[in-house]
Write a protein that binds this DNA or RNA. Structure first.
Lengths: 336, 336
DNA sequence: CCCGGTATTGTTAGCGCTCACAATCTTGGG
DNA sequence: CCCAAGATTGTGAGCGCTAACAATACCGGG
């Protein structure tokens, strides 16, 4: 910076002012400085800047299962939003979301002086841990529900499940079975609750939900059990005609189990998933599901976080994004 | 730091020495300092440290399509490896890998003083752009091939394709058809080359490859064309009995097209994919594919990058990771 | 032509740390 | 008991920038 100043014949402070966009610099001076910066290939040193201003312009992100479609998309949304706001993001990928690993991750980020962090906390225990934890900088959760005092953004899973269930009921199904996700996941719990609420509102009896762990394998196992419930004997109403599976991966497993058991989809049983992974459209048959807009989630979380860091407006504490239904042929056949 | 020093009754320098793990500190002093640090909740300021040492201990990562399984896994591997080496990583997600966006991404990272970057460059044009570009810090590519002078790590796609093709030939297929990925992708090109080489080595005639764009939809379209090639008339040898699809997503589309056309897999045609996405095991039928160890790729790229940054040993310029074959029922039926 | 006020520029301290070097304390052998 | 060598600690400068204040330049009205 000194070099630039010398080249133009001004003080380093004037150069600094140009860099910071300070108004009180004569246009001609500004132009000269800019030119010199370009000629000398000067780049200002972010560490020195951070040291002097005590602002690092860095945000942290903590996530698990980043190889999955949902988290990965959210991550991308977060990063892009932060970048356009002039922040650097740094992501920590955790294998498990334990209290200990969470603490470590936040510590790691703290070492580098992040000004705040977005934590993707799909499991209840993680939000709980977070809410009882010493938080060295502002933190915003994603998919952490909204019943705790820690601010966050989430997708309205309850609504998504309700949309699916009502779609199936509207197609004439008496009731809808459910393959649930692990109930310590907030999303799984909300989907189950939404499904149950929709059935109860319609006066339908909720069958006992089966539990899965999000994996295709667990869906496959559940599908094998469900296949046993399908009584397709001519003339007698089948006990099971529609299934809402809590995510697309498990739905894939269910479809496979049904196929092996000779249960036809959607002729014998309608199947719906959740997430709309890119492959869902190419399942056999193409899967009815619910799409969440992860990019919006990312943007919203950054907005919430920056509100808190900049502290100008208290802002909302919780943002909820509505998902929407994608109907495909796995639920295509209407029933009487 | 001054506060800690005062609390213990030593100089700030001694505290600094403890923090840096300098050997010449009396054990009792070290213990006292550590205790004071804990009591006061002191954390050293990374910006000041970076300013004084001119080492930011920050690495950049540039990637596209991070919502896909492969890139997302690689990203996780890179981040973890860097973290264990005491580095912070910052990822920039690009929508497209153009020369311009690449430049911008590197510029963005440069502003924050990264010491180096890993760039995931699956498309040839990206590596070319990178190799002709002014590089302000050490850069290592991932999946960027090894014919250019820029160091990088990649998976041996050629070998993977060869494994698949030889597996199919060994099962008695006369030849193997191929649904290729976009040929401006290095991986796609290598897979095609590996397939062709294996066929030629076996004296088989390579049928004209079909081109896809990695998406299930393009696989579906290719599958519809391929279905036309299957002549299953009894007594006459089918023209098409085996297909190697360049990734699992497209293979999913092919499977769907075959199913719709009444082509049975693997009875009429064997189908194999590439990547081993988690869903592949649950396709109908479960898909034979090739698995790449993305974690190893991530680790290797960080090692290569740090070698360059630390500059102690020139190290290898290119690392190649071998993938391995996963056989499932989509290629299960042996032929005479 | 002088003056106060505003626009523009310069000066001086740090921000919190590490490095090089100087100073002091130990230690063990003679 | 003395001394040199090594271990341990302290001192001062400076990394590259920004913030606060001081200094100077410029403007139009009286």
């Amino acid at each position: 910076m000194e070099d630039v100043a010398r080249a133009v014949g001004v003080s380093h402070q004037t150069v600094s002012r140009v860099l910071r966009g300070h108004p009180n610099v004569r246009d001609s001076t500004r132009a000269e400085v800019l030119q010199a910066i370009k000629d000398l290939g000067y780049r200002r040193n972010s560490s020195a800047r951070a040291l002097a201003t005590s602002r690092t312009h860095t945000l942290g992100v903590v996530a698990v299962n980043t190889a999955l479609f949902g988290p990965a998309s959210t991550l991308a949304g977060i990063e892009e939003a932060a970048r356009t706001e002039g922040f650097l993001t740094s992501t920590v990928n955790l294998r498990r979301l334990s209290r200990e690993s969470l603490t470590q991750a936040l510590e790691h980020l703290g070492e580098w002086g992040v000004e705040g962090a977005v934590v993707i906390t799909p499991q209840r225990q993680a939000v709980v841990a977070l809410s009882t934890m010493q938080r060295p900088f502002p933190i915003v959760t994603v998919e952490g529900g909204h019943d705790l005092d820690i601010p966050g953004v989430s997708v309205n899973q309850h609504l998504g499940a309700r949309l699916i269930t009502e779609h199936l009921l509207a197609a004439g199904h008496r009731t809808v079975w459910h393959v649930a996700g692990p109930q310590d996941w907030i999303e799984a719990e909300s989907r189950t609750a939404g499904w149950r609420a929709a059935l109860e509102d319609a006066g339908a009896e909720p069958p006992p939900p089966l539990l899965g762990d999000w994996s295709p394998l667990s869906g496959y196992r559940a599908g094998q059990q469900l296949a046993g419930e399908v009584v397709g004997a001519a003339g007698r109403a089948a006990a099971l005609t529609a299934v809402f599976v809590a995510n697309d991966q498990m739905a894939l497993g269910v479809l496979r189990a049904f196929r092996e058991a000779g249960v036809r989809v959607p002729d014998d049983v309608a199947v719906a998933g959740f997430d709309d992974i890119p492959e869902a459209e190419y399942f056999a048959p193409p899967l009815t599901t619910v799409r969440q807009d992860f990019e919006t989630v990312g943007k919203a979380s950054i907005r919430l976080l920056l509100d808190r860091i900049e502290g100008n407006s208290p802002g909302e504490r919780h943002l909820v994004i509505d998902p929407h239904l994608i109907v495909r042929s796995s639920t295509a056949t209407p029933r009487s």
